[in-house]
Simulated assay, not measured.
Amino acid sequence: MTSDELIDRARITDHILRYATGIDRRDWALYRSIFTDRMTPDFSSWSGEPALAMSADDWVAGVRATLEPFDATQHVLTNFVITVDGNSASCTCYMAAHHHLVSGDLREMHSIGGYYVHELQRSGDGWLIHRTTLNVTWEMGDRGLFERAALRATKNDGFSRV
């Protein structure tokens, strides 16, 4: 492997890790910065909805509305397999996502695991994701936690961050 290939792999790995960092730190500008302006998220294994091309701004707004009401989230990405072909690249990585909601003494968690396939394009010195596919292989907890988090957001009763 050449030094240029190693540099690309390191840049892609760092870039993909910003996916989890942006979400979990609620740094929506960081999360937005990892995508091309138009991108295609495919979360059909989770939602059952087909993949649709959309603006990255709309995607980030939807993720923010879904995850920000949780008290905490933790997205873990591991086992990166990266293929670079000129100005295109693919990165497959394992994932686990934990979503926490606290209400009084009740602490609830929902987790999913599986793997992402991110397709990237070279942009200047870096890389941007233009398609991301989530492949859920396991799930634990009550999916209704997402509805309860959304309800909390509509009540505008504040968030008790853990």
Score class of each variant (00 low, 15 high):
20 A>T: 03
21 T>K: 12
22 G>C: 11
24 D>N: 10
31 Y>T: 03
31 Y>R: 08
32 R>Q: 11
33 S>P: 14
36 T>H: 11
36 T>K: 07
37 D>Y: 03
39 M>W: 05
40 T>H: 00
45 S>L: 08
46 W>L: 15
46 W>F: 15
46 W>Y: 09
48 G>F: 03
49 E>V: 05
49 E>H: 09
50 P>Y: 01
52 L>Y: 00
55 S>E: 14
57 D>N: 08
58 D>Q: 10
61 A>E: 09
63 V>K: 02
65 A>K: 05
65 A>H: 05
68 E>Y: 02
69 P>I: 04
71 D>Y: 00
75 H>P: 11
77 L>S: 04
80 F>K: 04
80 F>N: 13
86 G>L: 10
86 G>I: 06
87 N>K: 04
87 N>D: 15
88 S>P: 09
90 S>R: 14
91 C>R: 02
92 T>N: 03
93 C>T: 00
95 M>I: 09
95 M>L: 15
96 A>Y: 05
102 V>Y: 06
103 S>E: 15
105 D>E: 10
106 L>V: 15
107 R>W: 05
109 M>V: 15
110 H>K: 07
112 I>Y: 03
115 Y>C: 11
117 V>I: 14
117 V>M: 08
118 H>P: 14
118 H>C: 12
118 H>V: 04
118 H>Y: 04
119 E>L: 14
120 L>E: 01
122 R>D: 02
122 R>I: 02
125 D>Y: 00
128 L>M: 11
129 I>F: 02
134 L>Q: 09
138 W>Q: 12
142 D>A: 10
143 R>Q: 10
143 R>F: 07
144 G>I: 01
145 L>S: 07
